[in-house]
Design a protein around this nucleic acid. Structure first.
Length: 720
RNA sequence: AGCGGGAUGGGAUAGCCAGGAGAUUCCGCCGGGCUCAUAACCCGGAGAUCGGUAGUUCAAAUCUACCUCCCGCUACCA
């Protein structure tokens, strides 16, 4: 890449995706925030001027819809979540220099200012488009207020994104057959004036931008494809009242607000600005970070580094740099998109309660550093990583307790007992070289955005330390060769000090603890990596163990708890799904790094590709809930455009139903009429390929072998 | 079926972008050592044709093409 290595003379700013203010935080969120926090701390350790900022994402239709359902104002609703987030992050030592929210004054002002700038530069056009409208309520239905059919792939889609089909971002008015998600009313389209940001004019700029962009590969490759396919202009306004009013005189009467994705990333700037205003521009000047090229020769002087979840790459590599560029700000140096988290190998799912919640983790009494270490070092940033309590315990016990904690403790305890602190000596060449290497590796890791390597550095150094102390056996030297023993122990204290410095980014609390135990002055949060080579303090108190192990029984207990919770969430599926309405809603979240639902429960150990019998038994009463009927197919015709679907009318005695079934390739459609079948009669109706299907015809296996009766059962008889 | 991510010793991971020695580390296993340390630590060993095939190259885990399989999301298996 074309960027200069860190540390640079410029001012850096590190951000992480904005948590969307409509749900509890979980390990998926935490992964991104701890990675960015560790990266920012590592930047500080190598002497880069930097700030770490973020804020809550308050606007958008999911908040409005959820608030409406709870009967509170969107502001009240989102502020409550915002406050919870603001309280939670410090508990994980996620140390934002500023944490704001998108609904505050700074962001509102700045957003309007930037939009005016986009207008002034001629990148905003007013266009008349058709928007979904609820005729009964007489209100507009932007984004998630409406569902319908994707015009590109024909799938069921949300108003703003074809979430289930081709994954495209949908512009207002594009979705077909719209229905209000609030009232269920079919929506009609009305003509409205809206503002468009002409992103399509910026393809060349964006291509160049991507060529110079640092960070993870996925953040560079995916948008390239989108550009090749052709960029669409972006509608940046919505007909609703929750959001930032579109700047200008005539807009207020129309309830025209800016689309949430306009003001959300601007919070990165706003939050930096708030930080600057609080500490003073002489300490940190937000304009150097966001507008550094004004004062500097280089074109891209600000060192802007975004950490995001991989689901929001498009917003950060297309819309956002386009806005920054036109409004005269610097564009990002790097976008690092993290992978998802799985729990015990399965997708994290908030609605199924298969998640490790932030508060839950804390309530279990674990130190935040343990999770920080696990999340940042379990795999590369881009990689999906799995969380299980067993693996967690494994890594804590092996690497933190056994290697890092043990090394620091044994060396320092030896030193304390024999020398009341650091013995008289100077660092050996071998140890000095080892520490230098470790420092270099962290430097390199920062420049490669390799948070994992930043995290493993202190543990690797401790591993060397354990080997070193073992090889030199100070315990057998201490009587006969006191000088040699002193040398070894001095080296160990030096190594412990280096571990403290190296551990700071990923395990800030533990690092500070170790630093204090070593009798060092000040805080490890204020030193640079080179402090690892400075002579340790002469005296220190008796050390204590840095980490506590996680017992096997504890792991079993935690696993059981998680399993119970997932099971009970599954029981109450219907109800809980309504409350949680849709964690899918936080797809708008700027940091939603959970993998989404996955279900098929494990089917290992079963021969011949057959699914095992489900473990959960149901009661007879539940079986009684199934209304299975004998039916006779009356008519059958293929559905145009569908490969497999057949539209059937089936006589089930009490009535004739229209049912869609996937039989076309497997049966001769003309021969189906007259066939007796078994029908699941009280299944809720669904629409398949635009055709209503009221019930389900039972069939077995891939070949859709139809279930039938062999004697004289007549249509309408129940099957039991 | 579409899109995305993978495939490296028993399990989990690194290396791949910028091709070159005996392929990294952790867990597990076998054997040994140490006893300063939280049954922690250290050493040695077994164990990988780096998913397959073809190609580029003096040289491929790494680059190219095709293929297979796995995972996730989504879907016309209602």
């Amino acid at each position: 890449m074309s960027s200069q290595d860190f540390p640079t003379e410029e001012t850096a700013v590190v951000t992480c995706g904005l948590p969307y203010a409509n749900g509890d935080l979980h390990v998926g969120h935490l992964r991104g925030y701890t990675a960015a926090d560790a990266f920012n701390r590592a930047l500080e350790r190598i002497g880069q001027e930097t700030a770490y900022v973020s804020g809550s994402d308050m606007h958008g239709t999911p908040v409005a819809v959820n608030a409406w359902q709870e009967g509170v104002s969107p502001e009240e609703f989102s502020l409550e979540w915002h406050e919870q987030y603001a309280e939670t992050f410090p508990k994980f030592d996620v140390d934002f220099d500023n944490y704001g929210h998108t609904h505050d004054e700074t962001n509102t002002e700045l957003t309007r200012e930037i939009v005016r700038e986009l207008e002034a530069e001629g990148f905003v056009e007013e266009r008349t488009i058709e928007v979904a409208w609820d005729p009964e309520e007489d209100q507009a239905l932007p984004d998630r207020y409406v569902e319908g059919t994707c015009p590109y792939c024909g799938e069921q889609a949300r108003g703003d994104e074809c979430d289930e089909g081709c994954g495209r971002h949908l512009e207002p008015g594009e979705i077909e057959d719209p229905v209000s998600t609030v009232t269920g009313n079919p929506a009609e389209y009305r003509e409205r004036e809206h503002k468009f940001f002409t992103v399509s004019k910026l393809a060349d700029f964006l291509t160049e931008f991507l060529d110079d962009l640092d960070g993870t590969d996925n953040a560079r490759n995916q948008p390239r494809q989108w550009i090749e396919e052709g960029l669409q202009d972006w509608c940046i306004t919505r007909d609703m009242d929750w959001g930032i009013d579109y700047p200008g005189e005539h807009s207020s009467e129309d309830d025209l607000v800016l689309y949430v994705w306009v003001d959300a990333p601007i919070e990165y700037i706003a939050s930096t600005k708030q930080y600057s205003e609080r500490v003073g521009a002489d300490v940190y000047d937000w304009e150097d970070a966001w507008n550094g090229s004004e004062q500097s020769d280089s074109e891209n002087a600000g060192e802007i580094v975004h950490f995001i979840g991989r689901d929001i790459i498009q917003h950060h590599t297309i819309f956002w740099p386009a806005m920054l560029h036109v409004a005269g700000y610097d564009t990002p140096r790097a976008v690092c998109a993290t992978g998802f988290i799985t729990i015990n190998g399965k997708g994290l799912s908030t609605s199924r309660n298969r998640a490790i919640w932030a508060q839950e983790y804390l309530d279990e009494g674990f130190h935040p550093d343990l999770l920080r270490y696990y999340l940042t070092t379990n795999g590369g940033l881009q990689q999906d990583i799995d969380f299980s309590w067993e693996k967690f315990a494994d890594r804590v016990n092996g690497e933190l307790v056994g290697t890092l904690g043990n090394f620091a403790y044994r060396g320092m305890l030896f030193a304390f007992r024999n020398y009341d602190g650091t013995p008289e000596a100077t660092v050996s060449e071998e140890v000095e070289a080892e520490i230098e290497d470790a420092i270099d590796s962290v430097h390199a890791a920062v420049n490669e955005y390799d948070v994992r390597a930043i995290g493993t550095a202190p543990v690797e150094l401790a591993r060397f330390g354990n080997e070193y102390i073992q090889r030199n056996e100070p315990w057998s030297l201490v009587d006969d060769e006191p000088e040699a023993a002193a040398q070894v122990i001095y080296d160990c204290v030096q190594l412990s000090k280096a571990c403290a410095v190296l551990a700071e980014p990923v395990m800030p609390g533990t690092a500070e603890e170790l630093w204090t135990q070593l009798g060092e002055d000040g805080s490890v949060h204020d030193v640079e990596l080179e402090a690892a080579l400075e002579p340790p303090a002469d005296e220190f108190e008796e050390p204590t163990e840095l980490f506590e192990g996680v017992e096997d029984e504890r792991v079993e207990e935690l696993d059981a708890k998680l399993a119970d919770r997932v099971a009970s969430a599954a029981d109450g599926e219907d109800e809980s799904n309504v409350d949680e309405s849709d964690d899918a809603a936080d797809g708008d979240s700027a940091a939603d790094t959970d993998a989404t639902d996955e279900d098929a429960e494990s089917a290992d150990d079963v021969p011949a590709d057959l699914d095992p019998v489900l473990e959960d038994r149901i009661g007879f009463e539940e079986f009684q809930d199934l209304d299975l009927r004998v039916g006779r197919i009356e008519t059958a015709e293929g559905i145009e455009g569908a490969d497999e679907l057949v539209k059937l009318t089936v006589d089930i005695g009490v009535e004739v139903r229209q049912i869609v079934a996937g039989l076309k390739q497997l049966h001769d459609v003309d021969e189906l009429p007259g066939t007796k079948v078994v029908v699941m009669a009280n299944l809720e109706a669904a629409e398949l390929f635009g055709v209503e299907s009221d019930g389900m015809v039972l069939a077995a296996g891939e070949q859709a072998d139809l279930l039938t009766t062999y004697e004289d059962a007549v249509p309408g008889e129940r099957v039991r």
